[in-house]
Design a protein around this nucleic acid. Structure first.
Lengths: 148, 148
DNA sequence: GGGTAATGGTTGTATTTGTAACCAACAACG
DNA sequence: CGTTGTTGGTTACAAATACAACCATTACCC
């Protein structure tokens, strides 16, 4: 074993991943923040409900791999904005079925369209091939995100 | 324009990137946290000094794209751990030259070795080709990280 | 049924982070 | 020189996060 450590921070995957995620996330982040005063978890909850329909907090947390306290507070914020409603479900009165309001759906539609455009702009910085490989790699590295 | 939005959160690059970064970052994060009680920025400062030698806070901040207040606090924490020293430089007495102590170098050597191993384990989950493309993509997506 | 455990969700508190204001040293210009 | 503007760095305060403790309800099991 040689004494020189060949470790290079600039090639360290966690470092690069984090940088790219921050950089890329910030771009879209400013949008939902400026337009709706939302935090990232709020956007995610909104997106999940918009995409998969009514769910309870635990389902969202499982799918998005977000801790329940974060979900709880995000839901509270979205309720305050009149973007979601909660109905306690009768079969199990611990659970609450979260639903987008009209306004919530509108916000989701608005943001989803921008997100799509944003995503296309990002993809345009890569070749189609690179893009495909990138998605595959990211899915391999993060645990798979379950769908409903 | 059709009414159905083809936006899919599971394919949204910022989302995937963030997931992968969190997942991957947590693995190594637990190590420097458990072993040395360090936060991420502290590890980064340590790594920069270990790799590039003495620098001042601004240089590190520029290279790592980290805000100066975060650097400032990380340096304070590293000083408290006796991992770095600060010498005010004579030509410009606002600047402080940051230097790893013996103990700091040892911690860096320890962590760098683990990081390297960790990185190899991650790379092993991808084909060599995928790995190469991934690094290229991440560099394209995040702004380039300047070297000294 | 009645006790115990597990689950869905919220709240409290300690850390961590972001933002802005700040101080000291240097630079530039009259 | 002074006075004004920059730059390196720290501090103060607000916002956000993590972690643990906590209710309420349901499930299990004797």
């Amino acid at each position: 074993m040689t004494d020189a450590t060949p470790f290079r921070l600039q090639d360290f995957l966690p470092y690069l991943l984090n940088h790219a995620a921050e950089e890329v996330g910030q771009g879209f982040g400013r949008i939902y923040k400026d337009r709706y005063g939302m935090l990232r978890t709020e956007w995610r909850v909104l997106a999940h409900l918009g995409q998969f329909g009514p769910m309870d907090a635990t389902q969202i947390g499982t799918m998005a791999r977000v801790h329940k306290t974060k979900i709880s507070r995000a839901v509270a914020a979205l309720q305050a904005k009149r973007f979601v409603t909660r109905d306690t479900v009768d079969e199990d009165r611990r659970r609450a079925r979260l639903c987008l309001t009209r306004a919530g759906q509108a916000a989701y539609a608005d943001l989803a369209a921008i997100a799509l455009e944003h995503d296309r702009a990002l993809a345009a910085r890569l070749t189609p091939d690179e893009h495909a490989v990138l998605l595959r790699c990211l899915r391999k590295l993060g645990r798979d995100l379950p769908t409903p």
